[in-house]
Computed example of a mutant assay.
Amino acid sequence: MLKLPAPAKLNLTLRILGRRADGYHELQTLFQLLDYGDELEFSARADDVISVDAGELDVAERDNLVYRAALLLRKEAKLAGEKLPGAHIRLIKKLPHGGGIGGGSSDAATTLLGLNHLWRCNLPMDTLAELGRQLGADIPLFVRGHTAWAEGVGEKLTPVITEKRHYLVVSPGCEVSTAKIFHDSRLTRDSVAITLAALREGQLTETPLSSEKLEAFSGNDCQALVESLHPEVRDAREWLEQFAPAQLTGTGSCVFTAFQTEQAAKSALARLPRKWQGFIANGIQVSPVHQKLAKLTSRD
């Protein structure tokens, strides 16, 4: 059995520049990986069946991104002449569904990476990222496994290094539909583009982006619309504001704020109203999936 993490992400900034001819949106975002997330267990099967145990997650198997990622990977491997067995995948959910912290996307990416290792497909990272892109715009981030500046629909990734910060992430308990947000006529779609060079101005490329820089370019163009549709998201963000500037992540329901020390984050979490759930996570640069697979590969 192979057990791998599926880390969460935050959008430290999210700017929507416009709608493309294909219906998708041109955006710019800074993805921050976290050291907290779901877990997946992979076991080979003697037959050719792919089965998924998603626990209490109320999603039909055919719609589950883990199942779809496994099918897509096997199809790609078969095109290369590989005859592959089945697999059983157990998903251990910790991240809220529809929270905007990448739960489903990260699960799918870990599935692609995990089965590529388990089945010994040896597909290159570019191929796995392209398979992920076919399933969701955020998946290539998790496949490539590095905190990154993203453009396009989120697939054009440039790895960046950020200053270590401790995040308190709060889930107000509602589920936000990404499709509904992006189809709403009230969504801001005319933000002015910025550049990674502007984000790095005054800092060397290899120097971590400071908290001052990250806060100067923070914000989320989806926040006003999400809060108008889900007032509980606004309530959670305003509660967090007593500690430090807070904002929405992605197009989900989770809001977050950053602390310089873990103790400060823990103190805030201890005061969290019982009607909400929250967790503390550190910002990391490299996905723990890649770190674990690298160790396993070195032993082979």
Rank of each mutant, 00 (worst) to 15 (best):
Pro208Gly: 12
Pro231Ile: 07
Glu232Leu: 10
Thr29Tyr: 07
Ile181Val: 15
Asn116Tyr: 03
Thr127Asn: 08
Ala69Asn: 05
Asn116Met: 05
Thr127Lys: 14
Ala265Gln: 07
Glu201Gln: 15
Ser171Gly: 00
Arg19Trp: 03
Glu41Leu: 11
Lys292Glu: 13
Glu241Phe: 02
Val192Lys: 15
Thr249Ile: 02
Arg45His: 04
Lys156Thr: 10
Lys164Glu: 14
Thr297Asn: 05
Arg45Leu: 12
Leu27His: 05
Thr207Phe: 11
Asp184Pro: 14
Pro245Asn: 01
Glu241Trp: 01
Leu73Asp: 02
Ala216Ser: 14
Ser218Asp: 10
Leu214Thr: 03
Ala21Cys: 01
His166Ile: 09
Ala60Leu: 13
Leu229His: 13
Gly152Phe: 10
Tyr36Gly: 01
Ala224Gln: 11
Pro96Gly: 06
Ala193Arg: 15
Asp63Lys: 05
Lys213Thr: 13
Gln134Pro: 00
Gly250Met: 05
His166Tyr: 15
Ser228Ile: 01
Ala54Pro: 00
Ala258Tyr: 04
Gln247Asn: 04
Lys83Ala: 14
Lys275Gly: 00
Asn220Val: 10
Ala265Trp: 07
Thr188His: 14
Ala258Asp: 05
Val52Tyr: 01
Pro288Ile: 03
Asp235Ser: 10
Ser228Leu: 02
Leu115Asp: 11
Lys156Met: 07
Ile89Val: 10
Leu240Val: 01
Ile101Leu: 02
Ala8Asp: 00
Gly283Thr: 09
Ile161Gly: 07
Gly55Ala: 07
Gly154Asn: 06
Leu296Val: 02
Leu229Ala: 09
Ile161Asp: 14
Asp126His: 12
Ala281Ile: 07
Gly18Gln: 06
Leu214Cys: 12
Phe243Cys: 03
Val49Arg: 14
Phe217Trp: 15
Thr162Arg: 07
Leu2Ser: 04
Ala129Trp: 12
Ser185Ile: 12
Glu241Ala: 14
Ala69Lys: 03
Lys78Val: 13
Ala270Ser: 13
Gln285Asp: 09
Pro140Asp: 09
Lys180Ala: 15
Thr205Leu: 13
Leu34Val: 04
Leu272Trp: 01
Arg15Asn: 11
Ile280Phe: 09
Ala148Trp: 08
Leu128Gln: 08
Leu296Ser: 02
Gln263Phe: 04
Lys295Trp: 00
Leu14Arg: 04
Leu168Glu: 13
Arg271Pro: 00
Phe243Thr: 01
Pro124Asn: 14
Lys156Tyr: 09
Leu135His: 11
Pro124Gln: 06
Gln291His: 07
Thr207Pro: 00
Thr188Ile: 15
Ala265Pro: 12
Pro288Val: 02
Leu118Lys: 06
Asn64Trp: 05
Pro172Ile: 09
Ala109Asp: 04
Pro159Asn: 12
Glu212Ile: 13
Ala77Tyr: 00
His290Arg: 11
Ala108Asp: 08
Glu238Thr: 11
Ile50Tyr: 05
Asp300Asn: 04
Thr158Pro: 03
Ala193Gln: 15
Pro172Trp: 05
Gly250Gln: 07
Ala236Phe: 04
Leu269Glu: 08
Gly114Tyr: 06
Glu206Leu: 14
Leu225Ala: 11
Ala21Pro: 06
